[in-house]
Simulated assay, not measured.
Amino acid sequence: MTEKLTLSEATLKLEYYCSYQERCHSEVVDKLYLLGMKSEEIDVIVVHLLQHNFLNEERFARSFARGKHRIKSWGKTRIINELKQRHISAPNIKAALTEISEEEYQATFDALAERHWHSLTERKGQKKNKKFCDYLLRRGWESHLVYEKMKEFGSSTGSD
């Protein structure tokens, strides 16, 4: 970028950036540094965005949890880790997880596990079990759920 943005230009740009999609504080700060803003200017803009409700950590966390669970079928472990990486506070992470009902969580897990189990090309045995577990654990599902489901599928399907 050849010419530096003024404070008001950068503020407008970030208002649009935040209204387009929920953002966390670290994304906003990173964007401002990319735009060549100084620390003092970044502080002023972030305060402005907070005061005018363009930036809201709890709203971001709730939206993130809902979206990643419903669209990408992530489990709570992955959602928590991703929110922590974005420096979201523990109370906001807890609030975010309330966006996913137990019934919805279990239904998503069951459907994902079923679909993945039947998509594996291995017929049966340790290799299939490992691929099944690795996939679900990578997506952030709790290990006790994954292992119970693996045992259920392993015992219920003789020829699968």
Rank of each mutant, 00 (worst) to 15 (best):
K31R: 15
E15F: 01
Q85D: 14
S89H: 07
R139E: 12
F109M: 04
K31T: 06
E142M: 13
K4E: 12
H25Q: 09
L97R: 07
E15Y: 05
F132P: 07
S19F: 04
Q51C: 11
S89M: 10
K84D: 03
Q21R: 11
Y20Q: 08
F54P: 00
G75V: 11
Y17R: 02
K4L: 11
L97S: 05
C133P: 00
K13N: 08
D30S: 11
Y147K: 11
V29G: 03
I79D: 13
L5M: 13
T98S: 13
S8F: 05
F109G: 09
K94A: 14
L49M: 02
I45G: 02
R59E: 07
K13M: 10
H118Y: 15
F153R: 08
R138P: 00
P91A: 14
K13T: 12
P91Y: 12
D43M: 10
R86Q: 15
E58C: 09
V47I: 07
H118S: 09
E103C: 05
R139S: 08
H48F: 13
E27T: 09
R86D: 09
L137F: 04
A96K: 07
E22P: 05
I100V: 13
V47L: 11
L137K: 13
S159F: 11
E122G: 02
H69N: 15
K38P: 00
L34T: 10
